[in-house]
Each structure stands twice: as C-alpha cells, then as structure tokens.
Design a protein around this nucleic acid. Structure first.
Lengths: 151, 151
DNA sequence: GCTTGATCTAGATCGCAGTCTAGGTTCTAG
DNA sequence: CTAGAACCTAGACTGCGATCTAGATCAAGC
C-alpha cells in the first residue's frame, strides 16, 4: 500500500472522499502538481485551498469541477490572465453575473473565430495535400516545387 | 515621396516590381521586418535572399508567395521547427515529395484534431453562456455560482 | 551636402505558461 | 523506528516565437 497517495486508510471516508490531496487532484484533472501550485499562486481558484495541520493542501470535489472548466477554457485558448479575471468574478460572489456572461461570450466569439481561421487554413493545406498526392501518384508537377522559384 | 520605401523611382519597373524591399514584404505579408529577418536566420526561406550592393535584402514575388503559405501553416499551429523541416525539403529540390506529403498530411491531421478539440470546448462554453444568459434574464441560479462551492 | 527614413548585424530582452530544483517536512506501511 | 513516497516553499529555469536595442550604413529628396 505504498503508492496510494493521500487516501487515509481505514478512515471510513475511503468512499466519501471528503478531501483530496494534490496528487489525487493532479490525477483527476491531468494537471501536474506543479501546475496546481502554480494555479494557486496565480489565484485561479475560487477560494483559498485549505491545509491539513501539516500544511498540505486539501481539495474538495468542487475544486476539481472548477479545474475541469478551467481546462476547457485553457484548451480553447483562454489566457491565464483572463481565466484569472473570471475566477475573480466568481469568487466575489453574486452581483456580477452580467460581467461573467460578457467575458464568456467574448471568449466564445474568440473560439468561433479561431475555428474559422483553422478551417480556412485547413482548406489551403488540404489543397496542398491533394496536389502532392497527385504529384506523387502521377509525377505531374501540378503544385509548385522548384527550390528557387517557390512553394 | 518620402515614405515610399524601396520603390526605385523612374526605374521603369514601377509596375514590373522586379525586387521587393524588406519593408514592402512586411507590408505584403503582415510579418514584421524583425520577423522576416528572424525567419531568414531560422532558414525558413527556400533560398538565400539576395542583397543589393549596399547589403539590403531583395525579395522576389515567389518569396512573398512562400511566406503566404508559411503564414497559413503557422496560423494553423505548425511550429517553426516543422516549418523549417518542410522548407528544407522543398529547398533540396525534387525527390522527396513523398516526405513533404507525409509532413503535410500529418499537419492536416493535427489541424483537424485541433478543430475537434475546439468544437468540444465550444460546446461546453456555449452551455455556460446559455446558463448565464438565463440566469441574468430570470435570476434563476441554474449554473453554479457560490464562491465557495464551485463554478 | 545634409537630413531623414529605411535598412543592416549581433545580440539582449520579453511574455507566456508552465516546469524543475533545492532543501526541507509529513505521513504511513512495515 | 525507519524508509520512502508524497508533500511543502521560494525561486530559478525552460522553450517558443518573436520583438527590441544599439550602433552603424545606405538611399533619396531638397
């Protein structure tokens, strides 16, 4: 029972999972323990993460859920600074929902724009792929290949 | 006629545009002159860019076309290192088309995967936006908002 | 000829988002 | 009691992709 991380054995909350260690949260979210500490320094959590008597972080399921959303926002290109702003809004409680909405809408807009840009690039790239496929298949220099000329 | 950069006045190739200055290429491609020099150091061009007697770079239309493709590849997330590899393949002339094709196919695959990831994130984010819109409209706490709890 | 703007090289610096290190401390199984 | 895994803090370092600086040169219009 060495590599069992923070699971307090025979603690009766083996199932209830009252608190999670940083390692468990890392496993659950895919973030590294380094990243989790970094996120905390950057104030990306919705609350100060509480500690055990020994000084270790004790996360709740809600923190993991929040991190899952953070992961989505990050994966869709939201910079840390903006995520931080969002976290700050949520942290300061009700009353700023319109602001949060605006932030999310703006991000949604950005993501859609990014997807469109990728679609446009994809079209070009796919065109190149087709040209090269044809070239490789038939030997016809339909794309452009001369080292000096271009492409 | 001060800000006319590299256009050689009355040189008869006002229209033919035999050679472009770095500034003109910057304007044409959206890359900064710094970036263009950086690209050259990184060997991303298909040829050594020739110089005037005075040591200034003289680009050809083909270079601009190549940069346009580079921009597309970069915009779709291709790292400089991979672009460099591609440039190297093209530079070394015919005979490696299959390798170029493989590189482009792999990139196409990566771009499609990235788009799918963004689509997935977008769905989540849009869901949040809808929840917040409803909340702001109706005051119903349908999303999750408590500062301590989560979200 | 002189001023002004564009360009040159080499190298330093930047922002982002972590990642890693050093030097400890805490826990838990055996 | 002890080994070893997991954890702690503060701060240094990394990789990428530029971007900027310094100090000089070149080119064009007046």
């Amino acid at each position: 029972m060495k590599g069992m991380k923070g699971a307090r054995v025979g603690n009766a909350d083996d199932d209830k999972h009252a608190g999670l260690s940083i390692g468990e949260v890392a496993d659950a979210t895919g973030l590294s323990v380094h990243a989790l500490r970094f996120f905390e320094r950057e104030e990306l959590f919705l609350r100060p993460i509480p500690r055990t008597g020994g000084g270790r972080r004790v996360y709740a399921a809600a923190d993991v859920e929040w991190l899952a959303l953070c992961n989505r926002l990050r994966a869709s290109g939201m910079p840390i600074a903006e995520l931080k702003r969002f976290a700050g809004l949520v942290r300061s409680g009700p009353g700023n929902e319109a602001e949060r909405l605006a932030l999310l809408q703006e991000h949604e807009r950005a993501v859609r724009a990014r997807i469109e840009e990728l679609d446009a690039s994809l079209e070009i790239i796919h065109g190149k792929v087709l040209a090269y496929e044809k070239h490789v298949r038939e030997g016809t220099a339909a794309g452009v290949w001369a080292p000096t000329a271009s492409r």
